[in-house]
C-alpha cells in the first residue's frame, strides 16, 4: 500500500477479527531499520513469518520490540501507517511478544 484511502480501510477492517486475539509462534523474524514512508515513525520494528493455528502469515511487530525464532506472540490491533492529520487512521493486526521459549 503506497497510499491510504477510506475504501481500502473499509475493505481491510473486515479482516481484523479473524486474527485478533489469536496466538502464534515465530518462524523467522527480522528487525527493519530502513522503513517505507508510511511506517517510518515505527522503525525499528520487527517483521516476521509466524505460524498461527497451522497456517503461515507475514506480520508486523510492535515498534522497538525484538522477536526471535520460537517466541510466542499474540495478535493485537495497532495503528499500521503514519498517515497525515487529515487522513483516515489506519489500523491493522500486529504481533506482540508473550513469551520466549525456555
Amino acid at each position: 500500500m503506497t497510499n491510504t484511502s477510506p475504501m481500502k480501510y473499509w475493505r481491510e477492517n473486515k479482516n481484523w477479527s479473524f486474527l485478533l486475539g489469536k496466538k502464534g509462534t515465530i518462524i523467522f523474524s527480522t528487525t527493519i531499520h530502513t522503513a517505507p514512508e508510511l511506517l517510518q515513525t515505527y522503525a525499528p520494528y520487527p517483521f516476521a513469518i509466524v505460524e498461527i493455528e497451522g497456517k503461515k502469515y507475514e506480520l508486523l511487530g510492535i515498534p522497538g520490540e525484538t522477536l526471535s525464532k520460537g517466541d510466542c506472540v499474540e495478535c493485537v490491533l495497532r495503528k499500521t501507517a503514519n498517515v497525515q492529520s487529515h487522513e483516515v487512521i489506519y489500523y491493522g493486526i500486529k504481533i506482540k511478544k508473550i513469551s520466549s521459549p525456555t
Binding site: 486475539g21 510492535i62 515498534p63 522497538g64 493485537v76 489500523y91
Partner: peptide, 20 residues
C-alpha cells in the same frame, strides 16, 4: 502509550479481554 497505540486500540484490547 506505544507510538502505534491510541484510544481506539486501547479500547479494542480491553474489550477483547472482556469478550474472551
Amino acid at each position: 502509550p506505544h507510538i502505534d497505540e491510541d484510544t481506539a486500540t486501547l479500547a479494542v484490547t480491553a474489550a477483547l479481554q472482556a469478550k474472551q
